[in-house]
Amino acid sequence: MSAQDYVSTYAGHYFDFSEAVPFFLISLAGLCVVIGIILIMARVRAEFDRSHPSGGQNFDADEDKGISAEYDLNIDSDYYAKDRERAAAAKIDQDYYTEPYEDEDDTVKYPKPSNLTSRNDRANAGSIRTRNTETRSRSRGRAPQDIRALRFMESFFEMAFASTSVLLLLALYYIINDRISGPVASLWRSYKDWMLIGFLLLSMIVNRIFDRVLVHLRNLDSKQRGSMRLISSLYVVLILMYIRFIYDDLNYENLIIYFVTLIIGRFVYFDVTWEGFRGDISGIARNFPFLMLMVAYSGFVIWYGFHSGFLLKANGVIVSTLIAHLFMDVAIFLIDKTRILRLLCR
């Protein structure tokens, strides 16, 4: 089957709105349930921290390190100033609005600005600082569990986006390897390993687009993003093992070995340190509940898709799994753009 025949065969089915809309509504309803569970998790964690202050502090110490100041500037950024303007205001705060000091005659004085030379510059700086102070004061007014809830939800979204990008790689591999014939197939047989590396790079770009453009995840630091992407790799391995042993499909054995090798490489590499290894293991343990949530959420959505006939086994289980994840990502996008999350976390 050529690539054009493959697309034309299944495109009409998946773009049938009479079947696609109910499937999307199920995906959206499942996401709402997941968000409710995450809010409960944040509340339970807050209560635990309140009753065990030292334990709660240690639990979130790695996650909070290096990003506590970021919340002052990033929370509710869509409602107030733009990120660039707030960053400029923060620099003005540092260079101009320093602490007062006492002169020799015991009069309180303020240091003069070193980088603002005109009255208009100082006036504009004061205006920006006023808006920035308002933003930070409202950010600091949030309860700790509300900030944690935002972090938890964005961690789940990061896992969903990372899983979708990897599933895109796997779907392309499956379609070209098993369903496409002709010149593309011969090219694939000759350069399959190099093209697989190219697909991996493509999935990284897609993941970057998802969490920076589709839904801007502002409250995650690089360490938490890395932990969630590692969790998503474990999730993909579970999907591949399910297809391999439940559907008795031998085509995925090489992919299972490939991803298991990638996961092992995350822990064991040439300059590995004990602290880095322990940090990766701690990240998996801390974020393991998100893996269980994703398995339950995607499992229900995919089961409904096959049960209703919207998802087809004929085009490959991995392709149908990718389609289900795309619907889940659209649901995340709509939830984010309606700003319901920020209303729930106030």
Rank of each mutant, 00 (worst) to 15 (best):
R122V: 11
P144W: 00
F157R: 03
R122S: 12
R119L: 14
S114L: 06
R119T: 15
I147Q: 04
R140P: 00
T130V: 10
S155R: 09
R131N: 01
P113D: 01
E154R: 07
S137K: 10
M153D: 11
L150W: 02
S155D: 09
F157H: 03
I128A: 14
A143L: 06
S139K: 07
F157P: 00
I128H: 15
E158D: 11
T130S: 13
N115C: 09
T133R: 01
R129K: 03
T130A: 14
N124I: 12
G126A: 11
Q145L: 12
R140V: 05
N120E: 09
R129L: 09
G126P: 00
R138T: 07
M153N: 07
F152D: 09
P144I: 00
P144H: 02
R136Q: 07
S137T: 15
R131W: 08
E158Y: 11
R119F: 14
F152P: 05
M153R: 08
R151T: 03
N132H: 14
E158A: 13
R140K: 04
P113W: 00
A143I: 04
T133Y: 05
S118G: 07
S155F: 10
L150Y: 01
R142F: 05
S127R: 14
S137Q: 08
N115Q: 14
G141W: 01
E134M: 07
N115S: 15
S118D: 08
M153Q: 09
F157K: 00
R136G: 08
R140S: 09
S127M: 15
L116R: 00
R119D: 14
I147A: 02
R140Q: 02
S127Y: 10
Q145A: 15
F156T: 08
F157W: 07
R138H: 06
F157V: 08
I128N: 13
R148F: 08
D121R: 01
N132F: 13
P113E: 01
R138I: 04
L116K: 02
R148P: 00
I128D: 15
E154Q: 13
S139C: 04
M153Y: 12
E158W: 12
S114C: 08
R131K: 05
N115P: 11
G141Q: 04
R142A: 01
R148Y: 00
F152W: 05
P113M: 04
T117K: 14
P113Y: 05
M159W: 13
T135Y: 08
I128P: 10
Q145S: 15
I147R: 06
N124P: 04
R129T: 11
L150K: 11
D121P: 04
E158H: 11
A123E: 10
S114G: 12
R136T: 14
N132Q: 12
R138E: 02
A123G: 12
A125C: 08
D146M: 09
T117V: 12
S139V: 11
A149T: 01
F156G: 06
S118R: 01
T133K: 03
A123H: 14
D146K: 09
D121F: 04
N115L: 10
N120F: 14
S139I: 02
R140A: 09
P144T: 01
T133P: 00
R138L: 06
R142H: 06
T117C: 13
E158M: 11
A149H: 08
N124D: 10
P113K: 03
P113H: 05
T117Q: 15
P144V: 03
